[in-house]
Design a protein around this nucleic acid. Sequence first.
DNA 1: ACCCCATTAAAACAAACGTTTGAATTTCTT
DNA 2: AAGAAATTCAAACGTTTGTTTTAATGGGGT
Lengths: 215, 215
Amino acid sequence: MSQPDTKQRILDAAERLFAKEGFHCSSLRGITREAEANIAAVHYHFGSKEALIEAVFERRLQQLNPLRIRQMENVREVARQGGRRPKVEEILRAFVEPTFRFRDSEPGTRHFVTLVGRVLAEPDDRIRGIFVRRMMPIFLFTLELLEEALPELPRPTLFWRLHFTIGAVSHILQMDAKFQNFVQFPEGIQVPNNLDSLLAFLLTFLTAGLEAQNA
Amino acid sequence: MSQPDTKQRILDAAERLFAKEGFHCSSLRGITREAEANIAAVHYHFGSKEALIEAVFERRLQQLNPLRIRQMENVREVARQGGRRPKVEEILRAFVEPTFRFRDSEPGTRHFVTLVGRVLAEPDDRIRGIFVRRMMPIFLFTLELLEEALPELPRPTLFWRLHFTIGAVSHILQMDAKFQNFVQFPEGIQVPNNLDSLLAFLLTFLTAGLEAQNA
DNA sequence: ACCCCATTAAAACAAACGTTTGAATTTCTT
DNA sequence: AAGAAATTCAAACGTTTGTTTTAATGGGGT
């Protein structure tokens, strides 16, 4: 190969632009220009624009989702061996923390996380479906664990609360890079320079919401 | 005018298609075809595609936002006259309930609410800005009331929790019409046919999250 | 009847889109 | 070194996009 892996460079550029401008507003010409590749290379290596974003998701999720599942299985195992229920905060942490850590693990993963935050609001069913299909096992596993943690709450209640959780998380993930121009910050509010404090805020909020007892 | 108000028909069609397919994927040709109007009518009546979506937001928000503000002012006033703090649930209800009720008030408003749910995840800063600019007073007013309700919590904490709230709300609003194909429902989970029960679920979740005391 | 002005209509604009083609080039295999 | 396979390249494909232009239409006031 002439240059170090055109395929990877296209994936990197696509990941960045899909996150920045959305799927339909990112052009293959813009992506290949950034990747310093020919426009035909996309169809040669991937087949179509849709197959390209599928490959973008595949590359990262096959790394990230096992991390999540392992952490969630660990939560369940430790609880069982301790003869207690899993804690809601442990479950939520297993659900979102890997994503936050993943974000700063390599250059590029930061853009992927932004893309994940956006894709649930993607109007195109086909594109959103590519992501949702791959996340469904995680959602169902999380729901399962929450039922173990909160057996006194009805299943539909937990289902909807998990959806509220997903909404809050994806909204925060997507804001990420563009905190500055997303909202005008009231005086005295600072953007946390590391995401750890934001993660702590988030887990406190979500845990309380999920554990709410009335209604 | 030959037909009853081309301008309104264009607004209706644009509202519906922007909600369904997003801003950039909706073409002016599709919109004018649905509105049974000529393409040039958009530029004649509005000036540009961007000015069109601005008009779509303007038409509904000038009706909806005063409702919200009035209800929030009422929450503050009743609390003051009762010599107590406003309750978090009252504040949140004033923030989201008008939108839920607005949804079923007229034909078309349902599409608008879906559009609102989508637009916060819109990648295009200009388009998202059109909406955010108009909502900023509401956000700040809500934050103000939350400070009155929870004076023991630091301002940044409340700020982030309000953002988590906005994420959860917009995620639910956007799911709305497409519950069926958005996620695959686990067995036994039903879509609520009226939004009242969903609103109750939502308020319980958010209230608990906002009132969480640790961290 | 006339003119005026708001509105509609059809057609064309240049630009950008995803995709395809076929030949040139590089890389690997023998 | 020679042939085969993989990859890159420039160019063009036919559509579609938002926007503009120019002409036609239609009703209300004088």
